[in-house]
Design a protein around this nucleic acid. Structure first.
Length: 552
DNA sequence: CTGACTTGCGCC
DNA sequence: AAAGGGCGCAAGTCAG
């Protein structure tokens, strides 16, 4: 694969064509405004674009109507490499190592806000690429690691394309929904009518005529003064109480949440030209999951999803994997019995059918406990049976937990490493074995140790799940592109939303069946990439809908 | 006053 | 009934 390293300099943009051995074979210089034309012409023959950071290059290209097939995102790849236990970190050193480590993605909506003195402009992408290639080549796990780097970079392209396209959003539908639930939009600083109407019942019920329920402290004191035994004001806590003011209070909290998180201000801020635009940040979470920035894209409540409506003549294809993480656990541990249960569309039902557990509820709570480290109650009781039935799967997460408790680094299937634990308990755990009593009680240290073990336990599964999802996205992106024969990314079937194990594709209605096929094939391909021939299935729930809310 | 932290709750 | 892992965000609260 031919590689071209793009370098941004004050006087010009430089495209370095690399030879197979990674040395620079030639360079083309051109003014920054000619970038899109250059990339459009060059991308017609197979090329991997190498650049410092996708968020600094790709939005402008997309704006100019240019899609690229593949890239290497040095910022993201470096973050993977420097944490991976498969890599000799010393190979990543260099004068500007600190600069690379400190590089942040750009998420400013307005290109004019782009910093004039971007620290990225002082870095040398050619040298960094060579360091990364050397580190990869020296790794005993270069196959897996290489796949992870390619997938991570591909995710960066998907993320930029999703931000560019935006999620179709009907502000009028959203406004109607808000008005029905809250009343007309109030003047700034005023409560909506529905909240005002609930106030008297709350205040009278608690005997606090001046109470402002928006203040947690005030509310807590009022509840306690009314004789209610509560230590906090969480909805779940309040639901346990039998008191006449509680229903109105719960209703009030629910509506306030809607108003604050996804009310008219949210609409004003995040929805423009019929699109909800937020930034997706690949690798934004230590486990490799994506983070998001702007508008709370990772938690678009079901309540407002009716406002996500496909364009006229278009549809959403909504697809999610049922029980992604237990399936991933079956695959990465090579647990044949759990893979057998995963043959069912509902893995938990598969566990029941095989006689491992009696009910679906037991299967679910048991598996969640195994992956999250639940030891108490129902899930704790399930563990011995699960361990007997699925020794490799349960053994893998148990070992990850023990390693974490010892202060060790764990890694995902493809080699993403967990952070090195900090804090007194961990330093001593590594250096001295059992620590002497120093700085915090023994109970404190044990609590921290166990908490870190739950984190590493979850890390291996959540992180490998994120790798499966990256492979799924990357393959799907390419399949969707090939469904069209003309037009830009957002003029063809394209991704508009991704959350851990769920995608939303915006597609011309007549291509919906082809998109379903693409989504399923990409899912199968992701399983092959990660687990080879090991027989673990990743069945999808797929719907074709006009509104996101109608997906099941 | 600003910035850091906490609380509560939405998503997987 | 959650618990147990990972997030982002708005508003309130508190320290300086």
């Amino acid at each position: 694969m031919n590689r071209v390293v793009l370098v941004r300099r004050a006087e010009a943009t430089v495209a370095h064509e690399l030879a197979d051995d990674g040395t620079v074979a030639g360079a083309t210089r051109f003014p920054a405004e000619e970038l899109a034309g250059f990339v459009r012409d060059r991308d017609t023959s197979p090329v991997r674009w190498v650049w410092d950071d996708t968020t600094r290059w790709y939005p402008g290209l997309l704006e100019a109507g240019v899609r690229v097939e593949r890239c290497t995102d040095l910022r993201l790849c470096r973050a993977v490499l420097r944490r991976s236990p498969f890599v000799d970190r010393s190979l990543l050193g260099g004068d500007d190592a600190g600069g690379w480590d400190a590089l942040e993605p750009v998420t400013a909506a307005d290109p004019a806000l782009f910093p004039l003195a971007d620290p990225a402009d002082r870095l040398d992408p050619v040298a960094e690429h060579q360091r990364q290639q050397a580190a990869l080549a020296a790794s005993a796990e270069r196959g897996r690691l290489g796949l992870l780097l390619a997938a991570e970079s591909s995710g960066a392209l998907v993320a930029a394309e999703m931000t560019h396209a935006g999620l179709p959003w009907r502000a009028d539908v959203h406004d109607r929904l808000l008005t029905e639930l809250l009343g007309p939009r109030p003047a700034p600083g005023h409560r909506p009518a529905a909240l005002e109407r609930l106030l008297p019942a709350i205040r009278e019920g608690l005997g606090a005529p001046q109470l402002n329920p928006d203040s947690p402290g005030e509310l807590l004191r009022a509840l306690q003064t009314a004789g209610l035994p509560v230590a906090d004001t969480r909805s779940w806590t309040l639901e346990q109480l039998d008191h006449p003011s509680i229903p109105a209070l719960l209703e009030y909290k629910k509506l306030v949440r809607l108003l604050q998180a996804n009310g008219w201000n949210w609409l004003d801020t995040w929805v423009r030209d019929g699109r909800f635009r937020s930034y997706f940040l690949p690798g934004g979470v230590v486990t490799g999951r994506w983070a998001s920035n702007g508008g709370g894209a990772l938690s678009v409540p079901l309540q407002v999803r009716p406002a996500a409506v496909a364009d006229e003549g278009w549809r959403f294809v909504v697809a999610d994997v049922a029980q992604l993480e237990p399936r991933v656990l079956a695959g990465m541990s090579g647990d044949a019995a759990m893979a057998e249960a995963a043959r069912a569309t509902d893995l938990y039902q598969g566990m029941v059918a095989s006689g491992a557990v009696a009910t679906r509820a037991e299967a679910k709570v048991g598996m969640l406990g195994a992956m999250y480290g639940g030891t108490r109650g129902e899930s704790g009781r399930m563990m011995p049976r699960l361990t007997r039935r699925y020794p490799r799967a349960i053994g893998l997460v148990e070992e990850a937990a023990r390693a974490g408790e010892r202060g060790e680094v764990v890694h995902t299937l493809l080699g993403r490493g967990s952070p090195v634990p900090t804090g007194a308990w961990a330093e001593r755990a590594v250096a001295l074995g059992e620590p002497p009593d120093e700085g915090g009680s023994r109970e404190d240290r044990d609590r921290h140790r166990r908490a870190w073990g739950r984190f590493t336990r979850n890390f291996v599964v959540q992180g490998t799940g994120a790798e499966w999802a990256l492979c799924w996205l990357a393959d799907l992106r390419n399949r969707l592109w090939r469904l069209g024969d003309a037009g830009t990314v957002s003029e063809r079937a394209h991704l508009v939303f991704f959350l851990h194990d769920e995608v939303v594709v915006h597609t011309p209605a007549e291509l919906a069946d082809d998109v379903i096929d693409a989504v399923r094939r990409a899912s199968a391909e992701a399983g092959r990439l990660l687990f080879g021939g090991f027989p673990v299935d990743f069945p999808l729930d797929v719907s074709v809908v006009e509104s996101w809310a109608d997906a099941d």
